[in-house]
Design a binder for these strands. Structure first.
Lengths: 332, 332
DNA sequence: TTGTACGCGTTATCAC
DNA sequence: GTGATAACGCGTACAA
């Protein structure tokens, strides 16, 4: 791994000239350029991104940070691919970190990113008043919030229209004749959960269906909570004829609970989930879901970030992508 | 974000002293230390990992690189979590990159990692003579190969005993009374594929079951190829009674192909897959699989890397983890 | 068009 | 115990 100095020595020029060739500056004699290029190639020169970052401090460090709760959640894996693909197309590498929804881990990784001088950070805030994210924005570091939003400060945001997603699901179920529809919700401090819940409530109301508080249960987006809460709902004296579950993992839990009771989907109870899965088709029965455009969210977020690099003063944009209903067999 | 110099000024000492405090050197007066610590805290000092890396070059840069084919493959997502968890426990961040099995992308990301001076790299080699990986090792960069191995040069490796995995599957099917067992294999230039194929062939032979070349098809580990090849196998005049599929995505393709033919699993044909999935239980029917300890592979790989940091001259280790058979309903 | 020299934030080697 | 100072590799302002 030769350095700029090595190349300069080999080519018989100064380091400045080599640097100019590497960075495609125009002010260099064509003949010198070719000589330098040959030396560059012979030594297999690879510029030190570290040294470059230290020198520049502000601007193109060709690295961006992405924090997600858990890469094992297919939604975030897909989102991450969207980010990375755009990054790769722009010669950027992605520092990918899992926060596990833990403030400590989030803080640790954000400090790493700061001290790595990443050009920008893509992150789903832990909640709507996420102090770390707020601070980040105050510091002037380009940030794009994905999936969720913060209310504390204006910031670029790319989300899915969760309200619309819930609306799609409930209207579909109502059209199928259901009037008693259960809902397994997610953590209420996350905006996505509340939006989905609002969509559920409003849509019922719009169709003059009385809301029964017993039919709504608050979970934590994990499989086990989906199972538990679904059991509670199935235990009700007047069992619902359909169930809407607010994310992919909880939907699998719900499925398990229903099967454990010896009930059949959709004969005994219809099921609609949130988030599509590559395996949704193969599940028993194939799962009807509200599909979030996760890849698009990641892609768009990265694009917004690059736009901000190009134009730091643009005012924060808030992009909302629409989910779609994918009808399979679980909804009857 | 204050720098060392700012802290030094505030505390009325030299940068050297501050550095000593930060790095917990002993040679500093207790009283000075407390004064510096206060200044550190007041400025919310966060050391620049970039500057530190530039200075040190060799050794603790607290960053490691991980290259995987695709984070959307649950096997690699799980492996990545194993790596990251160990990294986090050691205050390391992980630069995670998807190669998509493309030599160009692999080369790009390896160059990034080199020029980021990562302390070590964890990578599944593209094939057994992966030149990039070979070069990396020659350059003296700590490397751990995971999932697959290279033959060109001795290097730390953490794999799964794929031969044993295939053996488990085939012996199980034979015990169930099957004698005509199809096999959808993976790309032959990857060692895992060949090991699984060898396990299949050898186990049949060990049980005096004649090998029928028609029953073996070579795929590419992707869903579509699983579907296609399974269709070919189902078209045989003498259809097998059981099918062993060499990875998770191809197993889903196989399932689709079988269902499309109107055949039932396991009544008409038994199915065993390779790689477990969080959804294997929910699939129709629940999939019998050879489960690879993916998280363990990642964890172990990171641990081996840290051992090498501590002892650069230790001779390369080759660790092989055992897969287990998880019996569900698809195997009858 | 080209070269010299400085500084980015650290750490480590010397002196004191 | 502490403080100058050099060095890591690069980009650029300035001088030639």
């Amino acid at each position: 791994m030769g350095t700029l100095k090595d190349v300069a020595r080999l080519a018989g020029v100064s380091t400045a000239t080599v640097s100019r060739v590497v960075n495609k500056s125009n002010n260099v004699d064509p003949e010198t350029r070719t000589r330098v290029k040959k030396a560059l190639k012979r030594l297999g020169y690879n510029p030190s991104r570290v040294a470059r970052r230290l020198r520049v401090t502000r601007g193109k460090t060709n690295m961006l940070g992405l924090i997600i709760p858990d890469i094992q959640n297919p939604f975030f894996a897909e989102l991450a691919r969207g980010v990375e693909d755009v990054g790769y197309a722009n010669n950027y590498a992605v520092l990918l970190c899992n926060s596990d929804e833990s403030p400590q881990k989030e803080k640790f990784y954000l400090d790493v990113m700061r001290s790595e001088y990443v050009d920008g950070i893509i992150i789903p805030p832990l909640n709507e008043t996420d102090q770390e994210v707020t601070t980040l924005v105050r510091e002037g570091i380009p940030v794009v919030c994905v999936d969720r939003s913060v209310l504390t400060i204006p910031v670029d945001t790319v989300e899915v229209n969760n309200y619309r997603g819930a609306q799609l699901a409930i209207e579909f179920l109502i059209a199928k004749g259901h009037r008693r529809i259960g809902f397994v919700s997610g953590r209420p401090d996350i905006s996505t959960s509340r939006d989905r819940l609002r969509g559920y409530v409003d849509t019922l109301k719009a169709h003059d269906i009385p809301a029964d508080p017993e039919l709504v249960r608050i979970g934590d987006y994990k499989q086990e909570s989906g199972r538990l809460l679904t059991e509670q709902i199935l235990d009700l004296s007047e069992r619902p004829t359909a169930l809407f579950v607010a994310n992919n993992l909880m939907a699998l839990g719900a499925l398990a609970a229903i099967h454990n009771r010896g009930l059949r989907v959709p004969d005994d109870i219809s099921l609609v989930g949130f988030d599509d899965l590559p395996w949704a088709e193969s599940i028993n029965p194939p799962l009807t879901v509200i599909r979030q455009p996760a890849y698009e969210v990641g892609r768009k977020a990265a694009e917004v970030l690059f736009e901000r690099f190009a134009n730091p003063d643009r005012k924060p944009s808030r992009i909302s992508l629409d989910p779609v209903l994918v009808v399979r067999r679980s909804s009857g």
